[in-house]
Structures are given as structure tokens and as C-alpha cells.
Design a binder for these strands. Sequence first.
DNA 1: TAGACGTAGA
DNA 2: TCTACGTCTA
Lengths: 164, 164
Amino acid sequence: RKWVNEDKRIGSVPGIEVGDKFECSTELNVIGLHRQFQNGIDFMMKDGEKLATSIVASGRYANHMISSEVLVYSGQGGNPRAGRIEPKDQKLERGNLALMNSMEAGTPVRVIRGFEDSEASKNMRYIYDGLYDVDKVTQERGEFGKLVFKFVLTRIPGQPKLSI
Amino acid sequence: RKWVNEDKRIGSVPGIEVGDKFECSTELNVIGLHRQFQNGIDFMMKDGEKLATSIVASGRYANHMISSEVLVYSGQGGNPRAGRIEPKDQKLERGNLALMNSMEAGTPVRVIRGFEDSEASKNMRYIYDGLYDVDKVTQERGEFGKLVFKFVLTRIPGQPKLSI
DNA sequence: TAGACGTAGA
DNA sequence: TCTACGTCTA
């Protein structure tokens, strides 16, 4: 379903404030915060190269907030889905490449955090955390012994504090 | 996301008429026409056995309208998704079992047809076709050489004609 | 926990 | 065509 035909953009989305909450991932799509359906990393083409626009950290993978300002985000690809696919090394392509380029270009990335909606409801909801810089990328062996990218993102200062 | 807490039911859904159209599969879920997300066969437990409530015929598999009154619907299971899973024989379980039970019990099944929304838009939309009886079940070798159930459903007379 | 006739975007 | 940190129900 085509919702809106707005151009993708880097940085804040007009009308969306830090702390805004969303009931489901479709809302993120409609509003333009994150224009991917089941893809944690959204990106756009800028002057012929991929640049990340937003990421969704649902906590499903080995991502975690080091502090309220630092997020470690695992790259995409190679994950067995529903125990089916053989785990594989992640490659520097698609979203991973986009985040790498964002680091080099110094462009900010919107971070949306997913959280489970209270006790055992299992409903994933989302909250807009704000803009982050990609500060560091490492590659390491993940839980399946395959190479995984770890992107270290730091929250850009001067944004409202996030309270869930 | 929990939408409505209405009981599942067999037969017509109040307020929904033959020919009603829906923009996406989520609408089918909300309205209660088809309470499954990515599952072509919806069913309920009735006196300890599964009974089919609705099916979605999106045309993705080897289903086809023999006439405007007869639908051949392929069972579920065993299909390779995105070329990943090995094809397997379909088993008489879940939705397949439910349809088999519906045939024996003589209970009607709601049929929703999916269609592509005009030229090359690739948006799947849905239309409520009405109530069908499950008249026959056969098992045959499908395109991958594995066993596939074929359910023959006949439109219950007396319903408005469907015009798309 | 694993299933499934979904989706949008590259 | 293929991927993807989804999402539902049983």
C-alpha cells in the first residue's frame, strides 16, 4: 500500500518530537520516521552513495544502550530467521554500508527504540529517541560464530531527555 | 497489536457484504473477516475440533476459480518461502485439518479474494466473495513433486453476484 | 516456539 | 527478485 510520496530525508522529521510514541511499525512508515517494513536500517541514496536515515532498535539482537547516550547496534544480514537459514557473515552492503557511510560523512541517524508494551502483552511499540552520530564500527564474531558488525552510536547533545 | 476482542465465528460477519473491498490484510484482521496475518486459512476450535472460518485466495499458489462458483484452493504447508525452505509434503494439520473438518461438518467458509490493484502497482487488495462449502478434498503432487491438498469449494447459492 | 497465500524497498 | 531487528495465532 502506498501511503505518502514524500522524499526521504536525513535528520529530524518535521512534527516529530523526541519521546513521541507509536503503536506499530506501520505508523513509523506512514509518518516517514522509518520507511522500511521489516528492516532495521533505513537509508537513502545521496550523490550516488547510501546514507543511513534511521534505525529501529527493537532489542531483538545484540544491541544495547551502554548508557542513555550510547547505543551499540548490530548490523543486518546473516541472522537465521525462525531457525531456518544458516547463519552467515554479515557483509558491508545495504544498511551496513549506509551506516558506515554515515559515519564517514558525519550525518545524523534517527534512532527509534522498540519496547514491549507492558507485562507480557508482547505488543511491540516504538518511541523516537532522537538523532545519533555513528562514531565507531567494529566487526566481531556473534553468537553463531559468524562476523557481525557493531555500530556504536552516540546521541547528539542538546536534545530533550528521553523518558519512557 | 490487539485490535478487537470479538469471538471468532463461522459464517457471515455482521455488516460485511459480498463485494466489500479492503485495502490491506490488516483491515481483514481488524474487521474480523480473516484473523490471520500471513496465513491463508483461518480456523477456530469448536467442541474440541478445528473448523475453518475463512480463507484468503491471493492467487499466489495454484488456486483458481474453475467458474464463478467453484474455487480450487491449495492447502498450507510445505511451500518454499523466498526459495529457502525445502519443499515438503503437506500434512493434514492446522488449516488443512480445519478445512477437512468443515467439509465433514458442512460448515460454510468465508472466501476473500486478493487481487492486484490495477496495473503493476503490486498492491494487494481484497474483496469479500461470500460463503462457500467445502465439497471435495484431493491430494496430489504439486510443482515441487510434493503432496499438496486441493480443496474444492463451491459458492453457496442465494448470495449476491460478485462484480469486481 | 514455530508456523504462515504479507509488505515495502533496493 | 530478494531481503528484512514484523506480527499474528495456535
